[in-house]
Design a binder for these strands. Structure first.
Lengths: 399, 399
DNA sequence: AGAGTATGTTCAAGCTGTTTACTTAGTCGT
DNA sequence: ACGACTAAGTAAACAGCTTGAACATACTCT
């Protein structure tokens, strides 16, 4: 249930063993079908060490053996795979207008999902509602016979490292909420990892951690919804998230993009959110808080006023992306959040601006891919589940 | 001589031993006067392990024993200190108008320094000149009888992780320079660690790594000179630097701060450097490239045009700092570079803007300290030396 | 069928951290 | 001044993990 992260400086033999087991598990997770010999080569371990480590992971049900591989002149190796049938992870996102829940297999496959509209209330009643939905999810047949590894909750506001407090969620009207402490009494039987994190950071983590094939060395997730935030995940083995001392890292909605510009709800002037965000688009077009932004705008996309507003917002987003490129320089940028549903009127100016300017400093040597998530509904919830898995693999759970 | 950094996933017993030795050494370095018992408690190791580790570090000359500490009811512990007399580190910075060199003790104390004006030429002749100055430094009495641990070079441009190439240095007119490969033939006798890094990143590393007492969990160094760049160092044990895939992380001079603003030399419009930077101040006030900016402006600080220009630049810097606060949220910000010598006309607006706005999102719970370096002349060179020490402590050198 | 080659396993050996008991060096109380 | 007490540091036996070398296994090529 603790979320603090112990910075490991020194270690004993047990630590070394766990380190090696984790490394093996991560490698097979990332590259399904790896053989013991492949692992020994890549991890710089001996065949014997890998053999015993794999055996123990097989016994614990983390791995399973697959087919024999094609021989390359000698005895063929046996393929190893993550055992995707034994465990599951719970991930939830408390959004501004929605609760989203997933149960994931260790591979990241979504086993069951729930998507409930909700009107923000107190943290306490939200926790009660979420607990009820989680229990509903856990009773579903695809999940019920698996072993749970823990639960992760993604929230729309800054959360500092090592302290499970949501400092402020302006769009929920919450402040200093220890959400896990509120949720735990409703789910006392739920053991394993308990964690909470910022929504964009969970999303970034999940997009990187559940990736297979060629894995970028870092990934930035930009979440464009009512507000706008970002998360940076780095490192392929077990990605690290940049949270900042106060959890404010990624609060890009409040970076200044137009000095002396409009007032933001934070009290400052010219914040990026005054140019791109659900609330600023609402304000510009006079759309009521109670109406769904996307549904309201969909039939009005041809109106010149709407087109102009979305184009301007899109261009501001492009600048914001370029600023992140020149501040954090991630290997890949992923764009998600409800505003991506506004389509090309909004997205095209952002993508165009970024493409036109990303090579200003170094020429066209290496392109940073910018990808728009097709459906970002469960990205943050799935990301929180990914964080649970990472914690389980690298924590004391693995014996 | 290799600069690539192997991401350690798995390890053997030797790795574990080195890890523990490094941890002990780091702890004593950070808190001089620690006893074996203190180390055992903090590092979660047994007395016996610490004892043998310390013994080996004493034998190798990394540590030395000090006085007995005050007893707290039992046998007093013996204080341990970093042996500051045995080794030294070389650090150099190739600036736009200056070469700066230092030889440091492991504590970070500058033993000898050199500061030479220079006019940018080819990489080759710069390497030759630098090598000559380095040899001069190594012959000085305070250094000559110590053992060298390696050399680090800080350069004004992006350098990607794991690849010792300076991609572009616009203010030097260099491109794709493997500077270490040019320097090495002139100093074949120099063994140990060889590395190069971006100037602001070296500075950030050094400011964090050589700190004693209360150590911030992360530190952002902003270098304001001809151009403007930043570096973020994180983690107290052995700080990590964020470089980005292409080494563009921290290129904050080219973040957009004024959409549709003036053209930048990068070809884009509204970059922060068009508002704050040595070159933009020169351009606004019509100061020739050949004249020293600081010396030219010092007698003119009362002129309304100068005051206005510097105030505007300072305010833009304040916004840039706030943007970094809301993007990276470091635990401490350090401001350096030649422009800091312009004094309060320039600095005061920056500091005021930052102080006035840093609490917009969370209230005044926790203040992020913003410090201006008194004399930033050797900060980057000393930081490069710090990187050498860290590489030596955590690399294979420690047996 | 037999040689060749690479995978995976077994087991004694070596190394590292731990445990336990002991020595050492102070303080406190009488 | 002496002894009881406390905590730091050390020595030796012990436990656990990785290693190295020999061996068993499984496929291909001739």
């Amino acid at each position: 249930m603790a979320t603090s992260y112990q910075h490991q400086k020194a270690g004993d033999l047990n630590f070394l063993k766990r380190l090696n087991r984790s490394a093996i598990l991560e490698m097979v997770r990332r590259v399904p079908g790896l053989t013991r010999a492949d692992i020994a080569t890549q991890a710089q371990l001996t065949k014997a060490t890998v053999g015993s480590g794999v055996q123990s992971l097989l016994n614990q049900g983390w791995l399973k053996e697959g087919d024999l591989q094609k021989s390359s002149g000698g005895r063929p190796g046996r393929a190893l795979h993550l055992n995707d049938d034994r465990h599951y992870l719970l991930g939830a996102e408390v959004g501004v207008h929605r609760l989203r829940l997933v149960a994931c297999a260790p591979s990241g496959k979504v086993l069951e999902a729930l998507h409930e509209p909700f009107v923000p209330t107190t943290p306490e009643s939200t926790a009660a509602l979420l607990a009820e939905l989680l229990q509903q999810l856990m009773r579903s047949p695809a999940v019920a016979q698996r072993e749970n590894l823990g639960i992760g909750v993604a929230l729309p506001g800054p959360i500092a490292t090592g302290d499970a407090v949501l400092r402020r969620a302006p769009n929920l009207g919450w402040q200093d909420v220890r959400f896990l402490d509120l949720l735990h009494p409703h789910l006392p039987e739920l053991k394993g990892v308990w964690l909470m994190d910022n929504e964009a950071k969970s999303a970034a983590f999940g997009e990187l951690y559940f990736r297979t094939g060629k894995i970028p060395e870092s990934l930035l997730y930009v979440s464009a919804g009512t507000g706008i935030g970002s998360g940076l995940a780095e490192g392929s083995h077990s990605p690290l998230l940049t949270r900042g001392v106060q959890g404010l890292a990624g609060e890009i909605g409040h970076t200044i993009l137009q000095p002396g510009g409009h007032y933001c709800h934070c009290g400052n002037r010219g914040c990026a959110e005054t140019l791109v965000s659900g609330w600023s688009i609402r304000a510009t077009l006079g759309i009521d808080e109670k109406d769904d932004l996307i549904q309201t705008l969909e039939p009005r996309l041809q109106e010149p006023e709407v087109t102009l507003t979305l184009r301007r917002a899109g261009e501001a987003l492009g600048m914001l992306l370029l600023n992140l490129h020149h501040t954090q320089n991630p290997a890949e940028i992923v764009l998600g959040g409800s505003l991506t549903q506004l389509g090309n009127t909004f997205l095209e100016p952002a993508l165009t601006y970024f493409e036109a300017n990303q090579h200003r400093l170094l020429g066209t040597t290496q392109r940073v891919p910018l990808r728009v998530v097709e459906d970002s509904t469960f990205v943050a919830a799935r990301g929180a589940a990914a964080q649970v898995l990472a914690r389980a693999i690298h924590g004391p759970e693995l014996s």
